[in-house]
Every structure is written in structure tokens, then in C-alpha cells.
């Protein structure tokens, strides 16, 4: 590790996972503003459980659970990300230059995750807040059981979009292969489009000319309503 005032550089080729995360924690403790992770080679669990402000740059692909269970962290992945990047992020900002695998931003609680490429299945599953921006397409069951927050997908989505979502909003710029149970498309006011466009462009992503706004229709919120037809769809 080469340590200077402004940043810490960690080379994954010569450092164990335990040491990598410890060095990030040490950098946080020493109030170093930036950590650079070199040669990540899609390793798992790089930068987990960091709960103080720091900026992390990954010089390549990351594996499962990068930047998960974190708070106040800002980060950039100069490559692709494996499963569940930013899982349970409390606050902060994660930018992924490439694509992400499944469960990107699972149980996201706050902050922003911006993926410039596409995302696999179950993006934003169980989101409890925050903002997930996907520049390309998103896969099957994106937004499943979403609870709160905002998801912006500039491209197309797979089947079961937003299935069983409790709350929150999903904006889709492209085609929706199939809406999930308990969802509906509602009108998007021009001011809201402009806000979404701004958010997308903040990350250098070109906004599509229009978005569909998908929300929970509330019809599955309670068991005791005798809406046999609705329940038959999902039970």
C-alpha cells in the first residue's frame, strides 16, 4: 500500500480480502478522502460495511456485494459489477461505468446508484428508499416487492416489473415486457419528466424522449378484500 495524504492505493493482486477491507476502514479512520482499488478482478465483497464518508474508485470489474451495507460512501466502478452491488446502501453515491449482474441495489435504503450500462434480474428488489438509475435495460423481476424510493430505467425491462411492490416509483424509458402483479402505469406530468431527465443526465446518460411511470395500484395491499379475480392472478 502506498499511502499519501490525498489517497490510499490498494492492489488486490497482492492483498487479501480481509486486508483490503481493513485498509479501507483504516483510511476512513485516518480521514483519507480517497481510496483506489487496483486490479479488483471481479473479486467479491470489496468495500463492505463502510459507514463513514470516503470516495472509492475501483479500477476494473467487481464481484458480488461490492459497496454493500455501506453508508455515506461515494464510489465509482470503472468496469462491470457482480451481484448486489450497493446492497442495503444507506446513503451515498455509487456510479458503475459498465453493466451490473443481478440484484443491483437490492434493499437500497438511501443515496443513488447509477449504472450506465444494463442490469440483470431483480434490480432494485426490495428497495426501501434511495434512487436506482439504469442507463440501459433491466431484467426479470426488477423492482420486485419494492417498498420505497425511485427507480429510473432508460431502456427496456423484462417480465414481472415491480411485482408485488408496496410503494415507490419505477420510470421506464423503453418497452416493458410485462407489468408485475399489483402495478399500474399512471400519467407522468411534464415537470416530473424534466426532473427524471435531469437526474439521468447528471450521470452522463442520455434520457429517452418519454418515460412510463409505474406505481403500486394498492389492490394487493390487504388480504381481506374479497377480490377473487385479483388474488387468483397471483395465488
Amino acid at each position: 500500500m502506498e499511502s499519501i495524504k490525498e489517497k490510499v492505493i490498494i492492489d488486490c493482486e497482492t492483498t487479501s480480502l480481509k486486508q483490503i477491507n481493513q485498509k479501507i476502514r483504516d483510511a476512513v479512520k485516518d480521514k483519507v478522502p480517497e481510496v483506489i482499488i487496483e486490479n479488483p478482478w471481479a473479486s467479491h465483497n470489496l468495500g463492505v460495511g463502510i459507514t463513514e464518508s470516503i470516495h472509492i474508485i475501483y479500477k476494473g470489474d467487481v464481484g458480488y456485494y461490492a459497496l454493500s451495507l455501506c453508508d455515506k460512501v461515494t464510489a465509482k466502478v470503472e468496469g462491470n459489477a457482480g451481484w448486489a452491488i450497493g446492497e442495503n446502501l444507506m446513503d451515498g453515491e455509487i456510479i458503475v461505468e459498465g453493466n451490473t449482474a443481478s440484484a443491483c441495489g437490492a434493499s437500497l435504503r438511501g443515496g443513488t446508484i447509477a449504472v450506465k450500462g444494463s442490469s440483470g434480474a431483480r434490480a432494485g428488489i426490495g428497495m426501501k428508499g434511495g434512487e436506482l438509475i439504469i442507463g440501459g435495460n433491466a431484467g426479470y423481476m426488477t423492482g420486485f416487492m419494492m417498498q420505497k424510493g425511485r427507480m429510473i430505467i432508460c431502456g427496456n425491462t423484462g417480465k414481472a416489473l415491480g411485482d408485488s411492490m408496496y410503494n415507490g416509483t419505477i420510470y421506464v424509458g423503453g418497452e416493458i415486457e410485462e407489468l408485475g402483479n399489483g402495478t399500474e402505469i399512471v400519467d407522468l406530468p411534464p415537470a416530473e419528466y424534466n426532473m427524471i431527465k435531469d437526474r439521468v443526465e447528471t450521470y452522463g446518460i442520455t434520457a429517452p424522449p418519454s418515460f412510463k411511470k409505474v406505481v403500486c395500484n394498492g389492490r394487493l395491499h390487504n388480504f381481506n378484500k374479497k377480490e377473487f379475480g385479483i388474488w387468483k392472478e397471483i395465488l
Binding site: 480480502l17 477491507n21 467479491h44 465483497n45 463492505v48 460495511g49 458480488y64 456485494y65 454493500s68
Partner: peptide, 8 residues
């Protein structure tokens, strides 16, 4: 891998 994440 999840287990490793929780341990970390």
C-alpha cells in the same frame, strides 16, 4: 459469498 460479506 454472502457469509463472507457478513463476516467482513
Amino acid at each position: 459469498v454472502k457469509m463472507e460479506q457478513i463476516r467482513e
